[in-house]
Computed example of a mutant assay.
Amino acid sequence: MSSATDSEAAISAFVNAIHPSCDYIVVSAAFSACLFTLFVVLVALSTKESRRCLAFRLNVLAICVVSVTGILTGLINGQAIFHPFNPVSTSVYLAAVVFTVFPPLLYDSILLTRLFAIYPFSTTPPITLLKIFAFPFCVKCTRVVVITVATHDYFGSGMTTEALIQDQSTVWFRNHYLIAEWTMQIADNLYSVSLFLYNLHIRTSPIKRARSIAERIRQIFYISVANFIFPLIFNVAQIIFVMIDRSPTTGATVLLINNYITVMGVLCATLWFSGSERVRAGSEALPEYMLNSRRPNSGRDDVAGGKSGSSIILIGRSVTHSNTVLDTEADPKQPTTLENENKHIFV
């Protein structure tokens, strides 16, 4: 009787031990399959011109990074299930942690690139670019420092994989570095999305009479909000779990899901633009009055605080090239055309 009880206890202990690893593998496998499908659709909808876009290349890089994260997650947790007494090497474990905590900086930078469509380098004064991008640049640099220090402290607590796994609970609970990182991530994304949507509203107000353009702007608004809301929910959940849950299992699962959700949000936005521009390719250009519309407050730049001339707004204009130009504020002496603009961007 005692032997049966001992066997049941051993089985229960083993199941409890591998339960977190099973959760990580299921999450990673499911979201990796979704990302692979979205990547195939992205390539299918892309054109030769759109593949030159910075956003397209960053999306491909993000997919590659999160795929590596999934592979490392599967490798570590698969080893923990099938060979619990022979864990992976410390270097592999370190790589998995790095690919989990650092890539959100890349994903958030893809969201930040939407501001380049409103403030292109070629036509925006340097002082304006400094005012706009100084805050997100400082925040991202601070996040890099915080994550680096947190990672260094974690791996300084043990030299073997077994020691690092045992110290997870101690390092996780109320880790002020992680709380600071996720709080700054919320502020970083809130700034980028708010500034983008505000300028989108200001710069497109002269063309609200065009129904198709107005509908397109509303869709851009919804996509931008969705790209912020879903990661925000998971960021708040991460902060809650790190504050109240001593076990890192649930919080690490939410962190892993958040990485996939962020990439999928940006990728879905790119897919929407790729598909819509492919369908609209070859359609007629916008009327001339829409291209030369002035901003309501053309005498002053709302962000830079300086004088500004007339603005040329290009929203969804289609020609022989299947590109997307969201809007460009051009020099009046150098009118911008879709054919001459090489720095297109997706939302």
Rank of each mutant, 00 (worst) to 15 (best):
P125N: 08
P125S: 04
P125Y: 03
P126D: 02
P126I: 00
P126M: 02
I127Q: 15
I127N: 13
I127H: 15
T128I: 05
T128P: 04
L129Q: 10
L130Q: 09
L130E: 08
L130H: 08
K131Y: 10
I132Q: 07
I132E: 07
I132R: 13
F133H: 03
F133D: 03
F133R: 03
A134L: 06
A134T: 03
F135C: 07
F135R: 05
F135S: 07
F135A: 12
F135E: 02
P136G: 07
P136C: 06
F137N: 10
C138G: 06
C138Y: 04
C138A: 14
C138I: 01
C138K: 03
V139Q: 11
V139P: 12
V139D: 11
V139N: 12
K140I: 03
K140G: 03
K140W: 07
K140E: 08
C141M: 09
C141H: 03
C141K: 04
T142D: 01
R143L: 03
R143F: 00
V144C: 11
V144R: 01
V145S: 09
V145N: 01
V145G: 03
V146G: 12
I147Q: 14
I147R: 11
I147E: 15
I147L: 15
T148M: 08
V149D: 10
V149E: 10
T151A: 15
T151P: 09
T151V: 13
H152L: 02
H152A: 11
D153S: 13
D153K: 15
D153N: 15
Y154M: 10
Y154G: 02
F155N: 04
F155D: 06
G156C: 00
G156E: 00
S157L: 08
S157T: 08
S157W: 06
T160D: 06
T160Q: 08
T160W: 03
T161C: 06
T161W: 08
T161A: 05
T161V: 07
T161F: 08
T161D: 04
E162Y: 13
E162M: 14
E162P: 12
A163W: 00
A163I: 00
A163M: 00
L164A: 07
I165C: 09
I165S: 09
Q166D: 12
Q168A: 11
Q168W: 00
Q168F: 03
S169Q: 10
S169V: 01
S169H: 03
S169R: 11
T170N: 13
T170W: 06
V171I: 04
V171R: 10
W172Y: 13
W172A: 02
R174P: 05
R174M: 02
R174S: 03
R174D: 00
N175V: 08
H176W: 00
H176C: 00
Y177G: 14
Y177N: 14
Y177C: 06
L178E: 10
L178D: 07
L178A: 12
I179L: 13
A180F: 05
A180G: 08
A180W: 09
A180N: 05
E181Q: 05
E181K: 01
E181I: 00
W182A: 09
W182K: 06
T183R: 09
T183A: 15
M184D: 02
M184I: 07
Q185G: 14
Q185K: 02
Q185S: 12
Q185V: 01
I186Q: 09
I186K: 12
I186W: 10
I186M: 12
I186Y: 12
A187R: 01
A187T: 04
A187V: 06
